[in-house]
């Protein structure tokens, strides 16, 4: 098999070498793209491809660089299909994207609520959960866990926040509004910290997610540190 593979690899290399021509790139000259960028500048690329006749005059004012790819890269270059800058699956449905985004965030928030026995929307503990929550004054909480305007709502959404104390409270409405209208959190001057009621936290079932998800989740996630 090895000799076949050899002949084959040689074929690969020579084929790929031809593709090298595709490596001739027009460098971007837009100020906002820093030196590492090879992104075609916003208007240059379409002009080049559509109006070939003008190409020389356009490119002579710009820098043309021919980059020779290393041999190994040429194998991958065989996969190339025209300009890297392209739309793959037609126009993006921005409205649908926004809806999906909000739904996913809401689902995560609900998961987190179930898992931690805490309603993050109203900032109140949920009765009958595995955790017993008690209020702690803000001043007693490490600075890290105090209200922050940067990471609004993050811990709730992820459902994997190690410490519910992060669910700090004093969020003003303007910090929340843009991300999720469901995050209207009441202002309170206390932090809530969970205490594990039992010796261990029971892993809660997520009813709104398929069985597959659960299997996957066990396989992928690291052992949960909290609640142990």
């Amino acid at each position: 098999m090895s000799c076949c593979a050899v002949g084959f690899a040689q074929a690969c290399r020579s084929l790929a070498r031809r593709r090298d021509r595709a490596a001739a790139r027009v460098l971007p000259t837009e100020g906002n793209l820093n030196s590492r960028a090879h992104v075609p500048s916003r208007d240059l690329r379409p002009r080049l491809s559509r109006r070939r006749g003008l190409e020389v005059s356009v490119t002579s004012r710009r820098t043309i660089m021919c980059r020779i790819m290393p041999i190994e890269k040429r194998v991958l270059a065989a996969l190339r299909s025209g300009s890297t800058r392209r739309i793959l699956f037609g126009p993006v449905d921005h409205e649908g994207l926004r809806r999906d985004h909000q739904k996913l965030l809401r689902d995560d928030l609900e998961d987190a609520s179930r898992r931690w026995g805490f309603d993050f929307l109203t900032d109140t503990p949920i009765e009958g959960s595995d955790f017993q929550w008690e209020s702690v004054p803000v001043a007693k909480v490490p600075v890290l866990y105090r209200p922050s305007t940067v990471s609004v709502g993050e811990p709730q959404r992820l459902g994997a926040a190690p410490k519910p104390a992060v669910e700090s409270v004093q969020r003003s409405r303007e910090t929340v509004s843009c991300i999720s209208e469901s995050c209207n959190i009441l202002s309170q001057n206390v932090e809530s910290v969970p205490e594990v009621k039992q010796g261990h936290a029971v892993k809660r079932k997520q009813t709104n997610i398929t069985d597959f998800y659960q299997a996957k989740r066990r396989a992928v996630s690291t052992p949960r540190k909290s609640g142990q």
Partner: peptide, 25 residues
């Protein structure tokens, strides 16, 4: 830009957080 601006910057940043959540960070 590589998506030919079909993706908005804000969307990329918002979805970053969603993906992170689903990957459990």
């Amino acid at each position: 830009i590589y998506s030919d601006n079909s993706i908005r910057l804000q969307e990329l940043l918002e979805w970053e957080l969603v993906v992170l959540g689903k990957l459990k960070w």
